Simulated scan of single mutants.
Amino acid sequence: MLEIKQLHSIKEWKEAFPVIKQLRTHLDEESYLELVKEAMEKENYKMAALFDDETIIAVTGYMPMTTLYNGKFVWVCDLVTDEKHRSKGHGKTLLSYIENWGIKYGFKIISLSSGLQRKDAHRFYMDKMEYDQVSYVFLKKL
């Protein structure tokens, strides 16, 4: 049975790591746990996972934000389905969960960025989830 649960504890974050690692390949478990803890404490970051019985098959991280560009909105930081469970609608299930969460708490915009190389993800966001491509994201390492 599929069920979405919020992840609050270190134990739950550790259970989600093998799936998150498929998206965030640069992270080891220790740095991942430190970042999740800090983001939750300082940025109101939230994690949710889609479970098939007791197994995590997809994970998302998101947070409410306010900027001059978007006003009050929800930023999707992470969205990944375990490679063994892809193309079964699980990403849509989690993204719809975030959209419903946003509506419940009065947000009017959901926003995210996606790596230039992730062409399948772009098709998913635009064709299946009806997101518009409105900008490029730029990054400079200091």
Rank of each mutant, 00 (worst) to 15 (best):
L27W: 13
L27K: 06
L27S: 07
L27Q: 09
E29S: 07
E30I: 10
S31L: 13
S31N: 12
L33F: 01
E34V: 03
V36F: 00
V36Q: 01
V36H: 00
V36Y: 06
V36N: 04
E38I: 00
E38A: 00
A39P: 00
M40S: 00
K42P: 00
Y45M: 07
K46Y: 06
M47L: 15
M47C: 11
A48E: 01
A49N: 06
L50R: 05
D52H: 12
D53H: 10
E54W: 03
E54S: 15
T55R: 14
T55G: 11
T55Q: 15
I56A: 09
V59Q: 04
V59N: 02
G61I: 01
G61Q: 06
P64H: 10
M65A: 12
M65I: 14
M65H: 06
T66S: 08
T66R: 05
T67D: 02
N70A: 13
K72I: 13
K72D: 14
F73C: 14
F73I: 11
F73K: 09
W75I: 04
V76L: 14
D78V: 05
D78I: 05
D78Q: 07
D78G: 01
V80S: 04
D82E: 08
E83A: 09
K84Y: 13
H85K: 09
S87L: 15
S87T: 15
G89R: 10
G89V: 11
G91W: 04
G91H: 08
L94I: 07
L94W: 08
I98P: 00
I98D: 04
G102N: 09
G102Y: 05
G102V: 08
I103T: 10
I103W: 06
K104I: 12
K104C: 11
Y105T: 14
Y105R: 13
F107A: 03
L112K: 02
G115C: 05
R118N: 12
K119P: 09
K119V: 12
K119W: 04
